[in-house]
Write a protein that binds this DNA or RNA. Structure first.
Lengths: 234, 234
DNA sequence: ATTATCTATAGATCTATAGATAATGC
DNA sequence: ATTATCTATAGATCTATAGATAATGC
C-alpha cells in the first residue's frame, strides 16, 4: 500500500540516461513534431523530471536535433550488399524490387523502432528546412541510386533498354518518389488510397513493374528476369 | 507625428472580416501547422486583436479546420474539361501530361494563393488524421483518376497496351505518387533532388513518359501520340 | 567527492474571455 | 440599437533554471 512512497529513483549513468531520453523522445517528436511536443510529455515518456532533460540537452530544440542525428546513425543501410552487385539488368530489378518490398512490406528495419517514425521525421523536415530529409535520403539512398543508374546504363548496352533517355539520373529519383509517397500516405490512420489490389505481394510486383517499364525496360527483359522469388536473393 | 494616434479602427462586416482572417491565417498554418502557429501570429497577420478572432472562431483549432474547408472549396478542379474527354490513348496522355505539367510548373492555380500552401496543408494532414488529405485528394483527383482508368482500358482495346494488368485502379495512384512526391520535395528551401535535367519542359516530358511507359503503353503509341505541344490542348 | 536526480518555481507565452468603446445603420 | 472592435487580463501551460537531495564510487 505504501509501496509508492518507497520507490526510490533509479539512477543510471549520464550517457545511458541521455540515450534513453533520446529513444523515448523519438516517437513523440515523430508524432507531433517540434512544436507539437512539450517538455512535460518528453519527461513523462522518459520517466524523469523535466529538469533532468535539461541536464542533458540545452533546449528542447537541441534534443530534437540530436534525435535527427541519432536517426542518421541508426538508419540501417544496405550499401555493402548493393556495392557487390554487378551492373546488369537483373540487378537493376533486384535493386528496385528490394526497395519496393522493404517499404511496402513495412519491414521493421530496426528491432525496436517503428519505420514510420523515420518517415514522419523526414516529412516534418520537409515542412521545416529540409536539412534532415536531405541527409537522411542521401545516407540511405545515394548508393542505391548510383547503382540503379549504373545498371540502367548496363541494361541499355545489353539491349534490354532500347529507348533513348535524356538522363539516367532521373530514374532512381522517380522510383523513390513512388515508394516514398506510398509510405507518406500510410502515415495517418485514414486509408487514403485504394490500389484495388489486396495481396501485398501482388502490389509489390505492380509497383516494381511500373517502375521498370517506366525506365524503358523491354518486355523481353522483364519476362527473362522478373521473377519475384529470385529478386530478393542477394 | 501624432498620426498613429489618429488611426481609427477600420470596420468591415463580420462576414468579410471572417474571410479575411481565414485568408491571412492560411499561409501561417501552412507554414507552421496547428501547433506551430500562435493566436498572436494569427491576429498580427490579420491586423486585428486576438479577441476578434475569437468572435469569429470558437478556438484556434476550429479556425484551422475552417481553413481546411475553405481550401476544399477553393481548390479549382478541372473536372468539366476531363469529363468531356473520350476514352482513348491520346486523352490518357493528355490527362497525365496535364497533371505533371501543372504541378511541376508550379502554375498558380489560384490568383492569390501559393500552390505550395495547399501541399503543405495536405502534408500536415498526413501527419495528423489524414481527413483533410483524403477530402482534398478526392476532390481534386477522383474524376481525373477515373478518366485515366477509363482511358487505360480503352488504350488496351485499341492495342496501345498489350501487357496484362492485375488492376487498372493502381495506375492513376502511381502517377499521382510521382507528381505529389515531386511537390512535397519542393516544400523546403533545401534542394533535395537533382534530376540531372535543367530544362523544366524536358523534365515534364520525362515524368510523363515514365508514367506512360510504366502503365504499359507501347512505344508505337508513344511515337504516335506523345507530342507535348499538342497534349495541353483541350 | 561526484554524479544523478528531484522539487519548486521564475518568467514567458499562449489560449480564451469579460467588459468597455466606438463605428455603423436604421 | 446593433455590430465590430479593442484593452486588459485570467488562468493555464510551457520552457528553462536554481538549488536541494540522495545515490554512487572512490
Amino acid at each position: 500500500m505504501m509501496e509508492a512512497l518507497m520507490i526510490r529513483k533509479k539512477r543510471i549513468s549520464g550517457e545511458a540516461r541521455k540515450v534513453q531520453i533520446l529513444r523515448s523522445a523519438l516517437p513523440l517528436f515523430a508524432k507531433g513534431g517540434l512544436s507539437g511536443t512539450t517538455t512535460r510529455e518528453l519527461s513523462n515518456a522518459a520517466g524523469v523530471s523535466e529538469a533532468l532533460i535539461y541536464k542533458h540537452f540545452p533546449s528542447k530544440e537541441s534534443l530534437y536535433e540530436e534525435i535527427q542525428v541519432f536517426c542518421l546513425n541508426k538508419a540501417r543501410v544496405n550499401n555493402d550488399i548493393l556495392l557487390g552487385l554487378d551492373a546488369n539488368t537483373e540487378n537493376l530489378m533486384k535493386c528496385i524490387y528490394f526497395a519496393v518490398y522493404t517499404v511496402l512490406n513495412q519491414e521493421m528495419v530496426q528491432e525496436d523502432m517503428d519505420d514510420s517514425d523515420f518517415h514522419r521525421l523526414v516529412v516534418y523536415s520537409l515542412l521545416e528546412d529540409g536539412e534532415f530529409a536531405f541527409s537522411f535520403l542521401n545516407k540511405t539512398c545515394q548508393i542505391w541510386r548510383e547503382k540503379i543508374e549504373e545498371c540502367t546504363i548496363a541494361a541499355r548496352e545489353l539491349g534490354d533498354i532500347t529507348i533513348s533517355h535524356k538522363s539516367t539520373t532521373i530514374f532512381p529519383w522517380l522510383v523513390q518518389h513512388l515508394i516514398n509517397c506510398y509510405a507518406y500516405k500510410q502515415l495517418s490512420e485514414k486509408q487514403l488510397v485504394d490500389y484495388g489490389i489486396s495481396d501485398m505481394m501482388v502490389l509489390i510486383d505492380e509497383f516494381s513493374l511500373f517502375a521498370l517499364r517506366g525506365m524503358g525496360i523491354n518486355e523481353a527483359a522483364i519476362d527473362r528476369y522478373f521473377h519475384p522469388e529470385k529478386l530478393l536473393e542477394f
